[in-house]
Design a protein around this nucleic acid. Structure first.
Length: 222
DNA sequence: AAAGTGAACAACCGCCGCAGC
DNA sequence: GGCTGCGGCGGTTGTTCACTT
């Protein structure tokens, strides 16, 4: 037996209808009319995606952005599962947001939104510094001569070092589930965004100059 | 001001799995 | 075990709105 019946949800009755329930239904319909000429599916969707009182309204925060990308890296297009981790957000909302915002952002960064790996075309066009140590970097042609200015890494403060833990998954780490950049080998840490990491500092999506938040799209390069 | 275009979002569609008979 | 209806889900389409030409 697979999925539990919907009636096992909290605060719902199951089994035969009682006389009282019948009466309540009748009185409700008497008051509100038979209906909206809408099927149950449509009503459900409307309630879940729009009318539910606990829905969060407004733009997605950077934290939510990051979480969605992270979760999508693990779960793929399992929008309902992703939505389960974002209180107040619906699967439909997240799906739309992914398709209209995040997808484009990743593509502009040269990341395939489905695989979370670099786009093939980008590999050929963009020179990545040879000291980038993620596995997908290793797949790139590091002999490419075009390169962006290299900034000498600054030693990380102890507090920043402490932040470099498995719980501080960066966007880049989420984008490539096979990354080998781990805190255990980190000597120096420099916080850069994903676009910078892949050499797209001039990209519109690069947020280094816009967002100073510690929690946003961080990647700690060695 | 009107037409064209693209982004954002809501809703619909079709498939699948499950419960109930 | 087979059939039917329903709910849940992901993909897709339709609609609205803002912006540009």
């Amino acid at each position: 037996m697979g999925r539990p019946p919907c009636c096992e949800k909290a605060h719902t009755n199951k089994g035969a209808w009682t006389k009282e329930e019948d009466q309540r239904l009748i009185s409700y319909i008497k008051t509100n009319g038979e209906g909206l000429l809408r099927c149950g599916k449509s009503c459900r969707l409307r309630w879940i995606n729009y009318l539910r009182p606990d829905l969060k309204r407004g733009n997605f925060t950077e934290e939510e952005d990051e979480l969605i990308i992270k979760l999508h890296g693990f779960l793929g297009n399992k929008w309902s599962l992703i939505a389960g981790k974002l209180p107040g957000r619906t699967d439909n909302e997240i799906k739309n947001y992914w398709n209209t915002h995040i997808k484009r952002k990743l593509i502009s960064c040269g990341i395939d939104p489905q695989t979370h790996r670099p786009l093939v075309g980008e590999k050929q066009q963009i020179g990545i510094r040879a000291n980038g140590l993620t596995t997908y970097d290793n797949e790139l042609n590091l002999d490419l001569s075009i390169s962006l200015p290299y900034v000498q890494p600054q030693p990380a403060s102890p507090s920043i070092q402490a932040k470099i833990t498995s719980s501080t998954l960066s966007m880049a780490a989420a984008a490539t589930t096979t990354t080998t950049t781990t805190s255990s080998t980190t000597t120096y840490a420099q916080s850069v965004c994903l676009c910078c990491h892949i050499g797209l500092q001039t990209s519109e999506a690069c947020k280094c100059n816009v967002i100073q938040s510690q929690s946003v799209l961080r990647y700690y390069a060695t």
